[in-house]
Amino acid sequence: MQEYIIRRLFLMIPTLLGVSLIIFTIMRVIPGDVATLIATRGGEGTATEQEIGDLREKLGLADPLPIQYLKFVGGLLKLDVGESLWSGRPVIKEIVSRLPLTMELAVLAVLISLIIALPVGVLSAIRQDTWVDYLFRIISIAGLAMPNFWIGVLIILFLSLYFRWIPPLGYTDLFVDPGKNLQQMVWPAVALGYRLSAIVSRMTRSTMLEVLREDFIRTAWAKGLRERVVIYRHALKNALLPVITITGIQLGALMGGTVIMESIFTLPGVGRLLIDSINHRDYPVVQTIVVLLAFIFASVNLIVDMVYAWLNPRIRFS
């Protein structure tokens, strides 16, 4: 197991280097001249050659590209990537202060999706081809087609039309006022979790169907075990492995989703910061956030793989 973890950690290094190179290329090479864009506010205003030159110097854009890239990676490793062009505060501080909200939103969304998806998937599988199964399958296929921002807008519409209530705007810290925090967080989490649950419940259903046809399940029935024990202790436990993997894979989509939800429900998280920074052309913040999100995504996938290996000895020892 230890060897497996070490090997996977080493494999993460080229991946993260690749991520930084891709982001660097997108932000520095494609756009032509970032300094001109920033100084002229995206070509809307005017700026003198002097202003543009100064800004280029300040951003370190005057250096040759390889030097710029090394500085960028070095900054990331030292956790010091300079200041935001917009607020003037250190970029890392700005991001870290908003990270808890985004994490909370993502964790809540995963929890909600699992609470919905596992029972639905199991029920669909043990009642295969009955109306319950068809109903759940239609709901989950619809969930896959509905964009999550529309679900978010519909939730606001529903709450305001039927309850004359709109979630309190802004953000209250979880540890200051948990009740108010949940009132704000639960709806965006539901919007994200519903879509995720559609994917997870489909996976649960299909792996449950496979497992239920295995010999050991027949043995369990033959031993006269109760249905609950067969389904939950014997079948679900074995069906969960692919479900864990797909939940991990979906985390990337979930991050895109938090950007959207934070924008609909005006929550000051990392996603909101990303959109604001894009609008302010605050490039240091934008590229740091993207690398950070990729890092979190890669780490969580690593953790998912480890959990998988821990649960499944066949992988651990291969």
Partner: peptide, 10 residues
Amino acid sequence: DAKQAIPGLI
């Protein structure tokens, strides 16, 4: 691998 580590919408 690196590209797949960056969430699509991001």
